[in-house]
């Protein structure tokens, strides 16, 4: 590009033109952001309008039904809650332990490098591939069946990279003097980790766990792949029983359905009456994931603001 301007007027004209382009681009940027936000608002409002009539207490208390007007999400939200308990119970300890190992213990050699490359790659594997892993390994090779424990384990593996990365970032932000202080008064490595590193990185870890769990709640593909039934009109056995030892883990082996599967089932029916149910279930699902994400973002914001080492 050659700018050959002879007179001051021409130069001023060029500058004015360039400045107008600046303003035009700002407008373009705002429009682009607006499209994103508008989509989101349209999505939420559309579902809310379609599903509003179905959002009543009975919707939460009824089983799915062949009649759209009587169908509810009782088995779906109970299933989601139970699967999430299994997922959290597996992914949180494993992810935090792995993060601690990689940040505090791991020697710099090829095994560590291998683990790190693995975690980065796993984060990019499509979720449906985890479903195939679970189908081949958990359902058939280990014989766990199409049960709550299979779904919980699958989703735990899926969100493991999220928890590990969050843990590592939180630990990395803790300055070295904290560790040196602990060692100086005679603490072992584990004592340092247990009493200092883990408590101080807790908000960061929590943020990662919440984001991971919100992802797990909305995951549909891997759970469909393990062959979860879509019509479940019963609840898993209760975890608390009247007889000794009062706790039962039979529910882990029970067949189940979850919120996103129920929504998929209703969405894919040609009968439009079911679409209202799908919209209502979707509204609840979006509300749950948004609340969790907002909580995580707020936690992170607070963290950045209040912690100054």
């Amino acid at each position: 590009m050659t700018y050959v301007a002879q007179t001051p007027e021409q130069i001023r004209g060029l500058i004015a033109k360039a400045k107008r382009r600046d303003v035009a681009f700002v407008a373009l940027g705002v429009v682009a952001l607006g499209i994103g936000f508008a989509t989101f608002v349209a999505l939420f409002v559309d579902m809310l309008i379609d599903g509003w009539a179905r959002l009543s207490p009975e919707f939460f208390a009824q089983f799915p039904s062949r009649r759209a007007g009587q169908a509810g999400i009782l088995s779906a939200w109970v299933g989601t809650t139970l699967v999430m308990i299994v997922t959290a119970a597996v992914a949180v300890p494993l992810g935090v332990a792995a993060g601690i190992y990689l940040e505090e213990y791991a020697p710099k050699h090829w095994v560590t490098d291998l683990i790190e490359i693995n975690i980065t790659n796993l984060a990019g594997v499509p979720s449906i591939v985890y479903g195939l892993l679970a189908l081949g390994l958990f359902v058939y090779a280990f014989g766990l069946g199409q049960s709550i424990r299979t779904a919980g384990l699958t989703l735990a593996l899926l969100i493991l990279p999220v928890v590990i990365v969050a843990t590592r970032e939180a630990i990395r932000a803790i300055p070295g003097v904290i560790r040196e202080g602990a060692y100086a008064v005679g603490a072992t490595k584990w004592q340092t980790v247990r009493d200092h590193i883990v408590p101080y990185s807790m908000p960061g870890i929590l943020t990662g766990v919440i984001i991971g769990m919100s992802r797990a709640i909305g995951e549909t593909a891997p759970i469909i792949t393990i062959g979860a039934l879509t019509f479940i009109a019963f609840l898993p056995p209760a975890p608390v029983t009247g007889d000794f030892p009062f706790l039962s883990f039979e529910w882990l082996k029970a067949p189940f359905t979850v919120m996103p599967i129920q929504m998929f089932n209703w969405t894919s029916r040609p009968d439009e009456a079911f679409h209202a149910n799908a919209a209502a279930a979707g509204t609840i699902l979006v509300f749950m994931t948004l609340t969790m994400n907002a909580l995580a973002i707020w936690l992170r914001y607070r963290l950045r603001k209040h912690i100054k080492w």
Binding site: L43, R215, G218, A221, F264, I297
Partner: peptide, 14 residues
């Protein structure tokens, strides 16, 4: 970030 947290099944419905 919130936008990317919406479950994909909801996007499918949309």
């Amino acid at each position: 970030e919130l936008l990317s947290g919406v479950p994909t099944i909801v996007y499918g419905y949309f």
